[in-house]
Design a protein around this nucleic acid. Sequence first.
DNA 1: CTGATTAGATTGGTTGACCAGTTAAAGTAA
DNA 2: TTACTTTAACTGGTCAACCAATCTAATCAG
Lengths: 245, 245
Amino acid sequence: MELLNNFSRIEIETPVDKIIKQIKVLITSGQLKPGDRMPAERKLCEKLGVGRTHLRDAIKKLEFYGILKTMPQSGTVVAGMGITALEGLISDVLMLEANDFHALVETRVVLEVNSARFAAMRRSDQDIKQMTNALHDYEKAVSNGEDTVEHDLMFHLKIAEASSNSALKSLMLIISPDILTYFKESNACAGDRPISALEEHYIILEHIKNQNPDEASATMKNHLQDILDYSLSQNQLVEMKIGKA
Amino acid sequence: MELLNNFSRIEIETPVDKIIKQIKVLITSGQLKPGDRMPAERKLCEKLGVGRTHLRDAIKKLEFYGILKTMPQSGTVVAGMGITALEGLISDVLMLEANDFHALVETRVVLEVNSARFAAMRRSDQDIKQMTNALHDYEKAVSNGEDTVEHDLMFHLKIAEASSNSALKSLMLIISPDILTYFKESNACAGDRPISALEEHYIILEHIKNQNPDEASATMKNHLQDILDYSLSQNQLVEMKIGKA
DNA sequence: CTGATTAGATTGGTTGACCAGTTAAAGTAA
DNA sequence: TTACTTTAACTGGTCAACCAATCTAATCAG
C-alpha cells in the first residue's frame, strides 16, 4: 500500500468560511431577519474582526447562492426567504465541495439519462450536426491513441445542449470539472473502454436523431452503468483505506 | 396588459464578465494552454486595461468552476483539462443565471424524482426524523395560513439529504434560490395547493420510510407534475409577450 | 566546475484610503 | 405646520501601496 494513502485530507477553514458561519449566527439568532439590510461592510468587518476584503468575498459567495443581494451604494439585504430555508442553505454552502466520486457519477447518470431523453424529444438539426462533429472528434482521438476523456465528455455536453434545457446543461457543466479530474486521476477510461464507448455513442446519437426518447435514455443508462459500477468499487477501496489504515 | 410587461430585461455586462471573455480568448487562441501558468495578475490586468480587483474577481469565479487554480505566492494555472472542454465551460459560466422557469422546474423534477428513489433506498432513522420534523413545520405553516413555500422546499431538501448523495444535494441547493424566487414571484403555490401538497408529502415520506424506491419516486413525480405543467404555461405566456409585444 | 547560499525580483494576499452614488436628517421658505 | 431643498454622513465600489512567501539567478565556498 502506498504511504500516501495513510494521509487523510486536511480540512482548511478559510477566513471566508468562518465569516459565513458568523453571518449564519447573526441570522439564526434573529439579529438579522430576512429582508433586513445588513450592517455596513466596514462596521460588520470590524465587529467580526476581519478584513473588509474577506467579508466582501463572503458576501459575494452568499450572493451567488441567492442568499444575499447587494445594491451598489445602497446596502446589502438578506434574501426574503424564511429563516429555516436560509439556515439550511447557508450551512450547506460551506460543505458544498465535499463530493465523493460515486455520488458524483451517480448524479451524472441521473442528469445524462434525462438529457438524452429530452434531446431525443427536442433536438434541432443544428444539434445533430454539433453532436456528430463532437463524436467525430472523439473517434479521431480514439484512433490516434490520444487522451479521449475530454472529447468523450464534450459529446455528452453536446447532448445536454440539445436537451434545450439551460438549467440541466448548467448543472452538467458544474459537475464536469470534477468528473474530468476524477477520471484522469483514476484512469477510469483505459484499455478497450474508449472503443466500446464509441460504438455506444453512435447508438445514442442514432436514437436522438430518430427522436426515440425511451431508447435514447435507456442506451445512455446502459452506457454509464460500467462507470457507475467502477466508481462504486473505487469508493469502497477508499473507504477501506480510511477506515482501517 | 400591464405596461411593465413591455419592458425586457436589460443585460448588464459587468467588468468581470468582460474579463472572463478575454481570458477565454487567451485560452482558445492557444496563447494559454491547459497546465500553463497564467501571466502575473499585475501584468495581465494592465494588458486587459482593468483594475486588479476586477481581474481577481474574475479569477475567483473561474476558480470556483474549476477552470483555474491559484497557488498563493506562486501563480495561477489553467486547469489540466482539454481545451475543447474548457471552451464550452467558460462561455457558459457567463449565462448560467439565465434559466427560464420551465427548464428550472423540469430539472428540479429530474433531481427530486431520483432523490426520492435514493432516499428510499438509503435513508437512516436520523433522516426519517429530520424529514418528519420538516413536514410538521410545513403542516404548521399551512394551518396557520403562513407562507408555505420555504417549508415546502425545506422538506424536499431533507429528502435530498436522505439520499446520501452529496452531489445531488449540492445541485438541489444551487437551484433552490431560483426556485424560491420564481415561486414567490408567480404565486405558484396559492389556494388549496398547499393542502393537497401536504397529503402528498406524507405519502412520499411513508414510501421512503418503508424503503419502496419505485413508489417513492413515482409519487414524487406525480407530486411535481402540476408544477411542471404550470411552469410550462407560464413560459408560454412570457414567450408570447416577448415575441409580439 | 559543482554545489549551496543568498540577494533581489516576482508572486498572490491584504490593507487602508479614496470615489461616486444614495440616503436621511437638518434646514428653510411657504 | 408642511413641503421642498440642501447638506452631511454613509453606502458599496475601486484603486494603489504594502506584505510575506516564493522563485530565480547571481555569487561564492569547496
